[in-house]
Design a protein around this nucleic acid. Structure first.
Lengths: 177, 177
DNA sequence: TCCTGCAGCTAAAGCCGTTAGCCAAAAGCT
DNA sequence: AGCTTTTGGCTAACGGCTTTAGCTGCAGGA
């Protein structure tokens, strides 16, 4: 149910994810969906939780055995690959309030952050700066991925190359120049 | 008309910007709006053009007389202030295709990019890397601003401090470590 | 065996965007 | 001034979307 919604969102875009479309995909009439999800908002939340969980394991496995710059590059690649492969799922994760603390969303979010925290452990950062570094990485990766997914990079230069360049810059920056 | 739509989008969020709501705001029945805009998509495009134009002048004036790190910090501050003050307008700018080349959107986009290009001129970058640097700055600022606007930074550390930290990192990175 | 609850269905309401077609007033031309 | 055209509003209506209400059959446990 949620999995089918996630697939559909990846194919048509989160904005075009419709209850009717999902019903058709799973071979059911639209109102029947409400026996499984509370509504469209609930559906999107669950897709978001799925996306956070999946991306967390993707990044987590990508950085296994790596440290420092290698870990950063691997995490960045894994993150971007996930977002490009699953744009609908990822779009679901942005701009949602975590309702309650038993929300599976926060658990999934924490796991995703943990993967990036692991990357930062390879750099000698003062503890007080770890949160700043985490936010910086998240902003840069999130920004790049969403801009690319939205066709935000229209002009010439190669996008992969730009991404590598950005990762290099972040690595230099994290190593305290 | 577009200005009213931009205000409304800032207040209720771009996703909740509705033709009926805009009509009520300007004191008119809904179908009358179609004498001024071609439809909702057209409305959003025009709001986006407004946002790009406004943010371009905000950043442009902020960096006047500054160079290097000072210019970068000023541009970053101006950009973030604009996005936080006008989240609806800014949200309109992400994820749109520029239709025609006479589209006022591309002109406004070029002006916005020019402001960041001016900042980069204060660093000694090889010409081949300017596009990469531009994309990096855009990703980092866009990511940070949208994550903050979406209340994406839930945990403790001070957000302004994190932003400053990120700008420092970018500055170091741009100065080729 | 009976009964409870799950998972589907139809019907219908309400909101949104959009189009068609009408009309008055303002603006512009002779 | 008088006619004409454009402008900007209106009502009515359609189609699509989400969501609720209420019914029904069926599976699995008491």
């Amino acid at each position: 149910m949620v999995a089918a919604g996630a697939e559909l969102a990846d194919e048509v875009g989160l904005g075009a994810l419709t209850m009717g479309g999902l019903a058709e995909r799973v071979g059911v009439r639209t109102p029947s969906l409400y026996k499984h999800v509370a509504g469209q908002e609930d559906l999107v939340r669950r897709i978001a939780a799925l996306a956070l969980s999946e991306s967390a394991v993707a990044i987590g496995t990508a950085i296994q055995g790596l440290a420092g710059r290698d870990a950063l590059a691997a995490a960045a690649q894994a993150f971007r690959a996930y977002v490009l492969a699953h744009p609908g799922r990822y779009a679901a994760t942005v701009g949602l309030e975590p309702a309650g603390q038993d929300d599976p969303l926060v658990a999934a979010g924490v796991r995703a952050l943990a993967a990036f925290r692991a990357v930062l452990r390879g750099y000698d950062l003062p503890a007080a700066e770890e949160d700043h570094a985490l936010r910086t990485l998240r902003s840069a990766f999130h920004g790049f991925a969403t801009l690319q997914a939205a066709r935000g990079f229209q002009w010439s230069a190669d996008v992969d190359e730009s991404f590598g360049w950005m990762v290099d810059l972040l690595d230099r920056g994290l190593r305290r120049a």
